[in-house]
Design a protein around this nucleic acid. Structure first.
Length: 740
DNA sequence: AAAGTACGGGG
DNA sequence: GTGTACGTACTTT
């Protein structure tokens, strides 16, 4: 029998991989693909022998043979021992034995390869398939797969996805985490109908929920707070009532959980809630997924397809893990042995070399205040473009064969003989993103446009982390020297561009890492396009002309009014598009009320064509501020509009200072809400100067009519948000006695 | 004044 | 189970 459809889910079961397919009619097919994954042991025969002896005594169906593979860093073919587990359910266990220090003590001279990949990854790598791939499968009557023909490609931009029956699971009203508010009802939406289930009748709730599951058999359970709250409670209720809860499609299995964790990334603590993964069905928590949060399901599907990580797992992991998986796949297809963990340490550097290499991106201070007719030029995806152009990769940096191909400023050199894994990974990745950006521009259908935009945005995050991983000491395919080479080239390019435009008589208003703001009287858009082409030629990577601002404003730093801040500005392009960076309207911790006020003021100012018109509009901006102030005074603002959301960086008890965030985190903890670093809380400022600290702010979810808000405090936030829009150089401020 | 805390940026 | 920079702004003590 032949089945044509999309690969929906893959996981290991006794005797093979369970493969779920969904066809165009929405029928689900539960299939089995026998699969024998392998890992490899390298090292001197004398060192490997004891491990092989140990493995052969395990009394498990293993196949141990001698073979060869390519060592990643040297590119040389080396002899290795292949350990194949005939039944995939033994793989992880056996591989873990080998990696455990008991079996492989430090300094044993053994190297392990391909041993720490998940089974779906190994399966997809080996079969050259991927999640959501459209294919034709030949199965025998028992449902065992005989052959799979791929009718799809990961590099296709116009792929289709299977029809999915979706159940939406959330608590009634609001998007706050359920335990951060009072009791509410459970809302189950499926097939266009919503059922509300009362939480106090546990047996009834579980019974009704189970019946909905059985009747509709959803492929996807899309939840709000399903991971940290809804699913654990449903599962616990079912257990208490001894009621079978049929969350999985795979019979006689439990829900797979993964522990919650908090980790630090890019200077911020991130919290990943406990995961609840289903078998043969997807559970995706909208609030527990970086990718879904930033790029919707569309971006998640794109990443799952490219990375070969199943959808549910991809939803809960980082884009860094996704791009690493893509790089491992590329290596796998080339017969490269995938190193178990990073083995190379940072090469020695002298003190003065350290100073040169650790500089990172180049940043200038912008010329303060209001500017007309400024053009912006941006190097497109600068860091990935540099990696691709200069062959920057962990195995090509400081190779033994090309000591003369030097990186600017620093002593590193790059390989000219072997194309690196990272550049090879980036080429199709960059091309696919460019294709989506093109499609987004040329498509008129708004739905398609949004889809292409979500996908290109997902790929953007992949590129950002590709660079970031080079500087991360535990990255599988990263090396700090490669990171340094990238930033060294980036500084060189920005300097070259700066010199070129200044030589041509342009005034530089601002420059930062990969962007330039410049002006010269009478320069047309065509002139700027031509200028961008000249810079691209000189710099060997593309720079794009973003547009001409009617006006752009670089407000002064609040700590030093003489200087500007690199990443705080607002401007309006000739086509009316507003660009805002760093100010209140862009920040995640600005209350919706203040955000709305500032956004409205900026929209008003965006009509101005020049400084004169801008200043003429300032009274209108004042009027907008006044209207918002009136609403505060009349107390016609909801708590929701005044809520401030913050990510807590530590558990409530660890706070040393009683900031409003700490006060509210402690209030919530007192109400029995478990809060981990990286989770967010929302609060309203009730009385910022109150003696009793707990009266200063209250958690949004528990605040009631007996509380008021601190109108004065919100008014000062409003004033701040407005004042930044008033352009005045320091000397004028002095004249007006606003500065000493 | 110093220390603690949180945010952005990437399109 | 994988990005620990860096500068700014604001608060508390």
């Amino acid at each position: 029998m032949k089945i044509t459809g999309w690969i929906f889910d893959v996981y290991a079961v006794d005797g093979g991989m369970r493969l779920w397919m969904i066809d165009a009619q929405g029928r689900k097919h539960r299939l089995l693909d026998p699969f024998s994954p392998a890992f490899y042991i390298g090292g001197a025969p004398a060192a490997v022998r004891p491990l092989v002896t140990f493995l052969s005594r395990l009394n498990l169906p293993l196949e141990i043979t001698r073979t060869e593979g390519i060592e990643f860093y040297s590119g040389k073919t080396i002899p290795v021992t292949r350990v194949r587990t005939t039944n995939p359910i033994h793989f992880t266990k056996v591989a873990r034995w080998c990696t455990s220090t008991a079996v492989q003590p430090e300094g044993s001279g053994i190297s392990l390869y391909n041993c720490d990949l998940s089974l779906p990854q190994l399966y997809f790598f080996k079969r050259d398939l991927f999640p959501l791939a459209y294919c034709e499968v030949e199965v025998d009557p028992s449902g065992t797969i005989q052959a799979i023909v791929l009718l799809d490609s990961r590099w296709q931009t116009d792929y289709t996805t299977p029809p999915l029956v979706t159940m939406i699971l959330r608590m009634e009203g609001g998007s706050l985490r359920p335990d951060q508010t009072g009791p509410r009802r459970l809302e189950v939406t499926i097939d266009g109908r919503t059922a509300c289930l009362e939480a106090d009748d546990e047996a009834g709730l579980i019974d009704r929920f189970d019946r909905l599951l059985l009747r509709h058999d959803p492929d996807l359970i899309l939840s709000e707070w399903g991971d940290p709250y809804l699913l654990p409670r449903l599962i616990a209720m079912a257990k208490k009532k001894r009621f079978p809860l049929l969350l999985n499609r795979e019979p006689d299995t439990g829900v797979v959980t993964r522990r919650e964790r908090s980790y630090f990334t890019y200077g911020q603590v991130v919290h990943q809630a406990q995961a609840h993964l289903l078998l043969g069905r997807w559970h995706i928590d909208l609030h527990n997924s970086f990718l879904v949060d930033h790029t919707e399901l569309e971006g998640l599907f794109e990443f799952a397809r490219l990375s070969k990580i199943p959808v549910q797992q991809m939803a809960r992991t980082t884009t860094g893990t996704g791009i690493t998986s893509m790089q491992m796949d590329l290596a796998f297809q080339d017969g490269i042995l995938i190193p178990w963990r990073k083995q190379e340490s940072e090469a020695f550097k002298s003190a003065d070399q350290l100073l040169l290499t650790d500089k990172g991106g180049l940043t200038y201070a912008p010329k303060l205040g209001f500017h007309e007719e400024v053009a912006e030029l941006d190097f497109a995806s600068m860091y990935p473009a540099l990696m691709a152009r200069y062959n920057i990769s962990p195995e090509t940096i400081n190779c033994p064969c090309c000591p003369d191909n030097l990186v600017p400023e620093i002593g590193h050199h790059l390989c000219t003989k072997r194309r690196g894994l990272i550049p090879r990974f980036l080429e199709p990745f960059l091309a696919k993103r460019a294709a989506y950006k093109r499609l987004k521009k040329t498509t008129t259908d708004p739905e398609l446009k949004a889809r292409y935009d979500a996908r290109q945005s997902a790929l953007k995050w992949g590129m950002v982390t590709t660079f970031g991983y080079q500087g991360y000491k535990n990255a599988r395919f990263g090396k700090i020297e490669a990171h340094e080479a990238i930033t060294a080239y980036a500084r060189e390019k920005l300097l070259q561009a700066k010199e070129l435009v200044e030589a041509e008589g342009f005034e530089m208003i601002h420059a930062i890492v990969d962007s330039l703001w410049i002006k010269k009287q009478g320069t047309t858009e065509a002139d700027y396009e031509a200028l961008a082409d000249r810079i691209s030629k000189v710099c060997e990577i593309p720079i794009a002309f973003e547009g001409i601002y009617r006006w752009v404003l670089f407000p002064p730093s609040r700590s030093d009014r003489e200087i500007g801040v690199p990443n705080r500005y607002l401007g309006v392009f000739r086509n009316g598009e507003v660009k805002v960076r760093g100010i209140e309207a862009r920040r995640g911790d600005t209350p919706p009320f203040i955000r709305a006020a500032q956004t409205e003021m900026i929209a008003c100012l965006s009509q101005a064509k020049n400084r004169e018109e801008y200043e003429a509009l300032l009274p209108q901006v004042e009027a907008i501020r006044e209207a918002y102030r009136e609403r505060l005074k009349a107390r016609q603002v909801s708590f929701w509009e005044l809520a401030i959301s913050k990510t807590i960086s530590k558990s409530p008890a660890q706070y040393q200072k009683d900031s409003l965030t700490a006060i509210v985190a402690k209030e919530l903890a007192g109400r029995g809400v478990r809060l981990s670093p990286g989770e967010s809380i929302s609060y309203v400022i009730t009385d910022s100067k109150a003696r009793v600290k707990s009266d200063r702010a209250r958690a949004l979810g528990f605040i009631d009519g007996s509380w008021g808000f601190d109108a004065e405090k919100y008014e000062s936030l409003l004033t701040q948000a407005a004042e930044i829009l008033f352009p005045s150089p320091p000397d004028q401020l002095r004249q007006r006695k606003l500065l000493p």
